[in-house]
């Protein structure tokens, strides 16, 4: 690892994200930042080959730490990085460039329509955001311009166990980033004692709320929250507290969307019931089962969903190979 880059990552981790308007509570933002920095420092780092002179990273607003791992690895390899900051939340990208001062990282804060000029040079582009934003981005890229564009994905947990430790790990995955981003679990599929698991999850979600209170909540979430918890009270069971909920619902009511600090539990009796998941744009699965053949690009231990290894294939894509132009890249 390049010591200058390691120092820059540490500088970023030592900053106070409280004023960055991430939407998270101050303790929640600090926890997310700490987790992301620890994962990047744990490595191992990859390098594109050949190394592009410059890479444009089109940042999303929902996971403010997402550009860190790519910036660190690309700068360590010798690339310059341009961070296109999300208009809604530019402060984290600015802070990242500040932490990497002198290492060839700069931030661009412009509306999307004007920022597309950044793409005209043909530099490789790593994009993260909603499907519509990524599709719009793709329209501005030159033919053959290396691009790794990552739109909406969804993660789940599939577990056999029901212990308090397992529940704490799953609650951590659900609490970090308040359910934002493709690595937040949309639901837990419980093969074992789902009632025991849900009870322990309720304790763990309440503890997570005390430690990292939930941040801002979009008004549109309210009716959806009450619909899900109401459904659970009618058709299953609902564990609820201020700022968190663990609804237990039949499998046919599973949803691929995440509500902040809500972690639904769906009892399943066999893995074959989850075959339909493969039709979704999957990201990651937290599991205590070891191997799983459900179509997830990434499997990890519960509690590790939000701290992916830096050398993974992101969404199943070898991002570094794509940015180096060696393989054609992913578009949503």
């Amino acid at each position: 690892m390049d010591e200058r880059v390691v120092a820059a990552v540490r500088r970023f981790g030592s900053m106070d994200p409280t004023g960055w308007e991430t939407g998270l509570s101050a303790p929640g933002a600090r926890a997310a930042l700490h987790e992301a920095v620890a994962a990047v420092l744990a490595g191992p780092w990859q390098a594109p080959d050949p190394v592009p002179d410059r890479v444009v990273i089109w940042c999303a607003a929902n996971v403010f730490t997402a550009p860190l791992e790519w910036t660190a690895q690309l700068v360590a390899a010798g690339s310059k990085v341009v961070l296109k900051a999300p208009s809604r939340c530019p402060a984290p990208a600015r802070a990242l460039a500040q932490a990497f001062d002198g290492l060839g990282v700069r931030t661009v804060v412009q509306p999307h329509e004007r920022a597309v000029e950044l793409l005209a040079t043909g530099d490789p582009v790593l994009g993260m955001g909603g499907d519509a934003a990524m599709a719009q981005l793709a329209r501005h890229l030159l033919p053959g311009q290396p691009r790794s564009l990552h739109g909406h994905r969804v993660s789940f947990a599939v577990v056999q166990g029901s212990s308090p430790d397992l529940a704490r790990a799953l609650a951590r995955d659900a609490a970090l980033y308040d359910g934002a981003g493709c690595m937040s679990p949309a639901a837990v599929f419980a093969l074992g004692d789902h009632e025991r698991l849900a009870a322990h999850l309720a304790d763990a979600m309440a503890a997570a709320q005390r430690r990292w209170p939930r941040g801002e909540v979009d008004p549109a979430i309210g009716p959806r929250w009450r619909t899900r918890t109401g459904l659970a009270r009618v058709l299953g069971a609902s564990h609820e507290g201020p700022g968190w909920a663990v609804p237990v619902l039949p499998l046919h009511l599973a949803q691929a969307s995440v509500l902040p600090r809500m972690l639904p539990v769906h009892p399943v009796s066999r893995l074959a019931q989850l075959a339909g998941l493969a039709e979704l744009p999957l990201s990651s699965c937290a599991t205590d089962l070891g191997e799983l053949e459900l179509g997830f690009p990434r499997l990890c231990a519960p509690g590790s969903l939000q701290a992916p290894r830096t050398n993974r294939h992101h969404d199943g894509v070898d991002v570094m190979a794509v940015l180096s132009g060696q393989v054609s890249g992913g578009s949503p």
């Binding site: 009716p223 009270r233 009618v234 058709l235 609902s238």
Partner: peptide, 28 residues
């Protein structure tokens, strides 16, 4: 089913009465 939805709440005032979100009524 409505009793379960209300989770034992005994409404005394109009605004105490547990309201069913319209989206809930797509399923129940």
């Amino acid at each position: 089913a409505y009793g379960r939805f209300c989770a034992g709440l005994e409404p005394r005032e109009l605004t105490d009465i547990p309201s069913a979100p319209v989206a809930l009524l797509k399923h129940v």
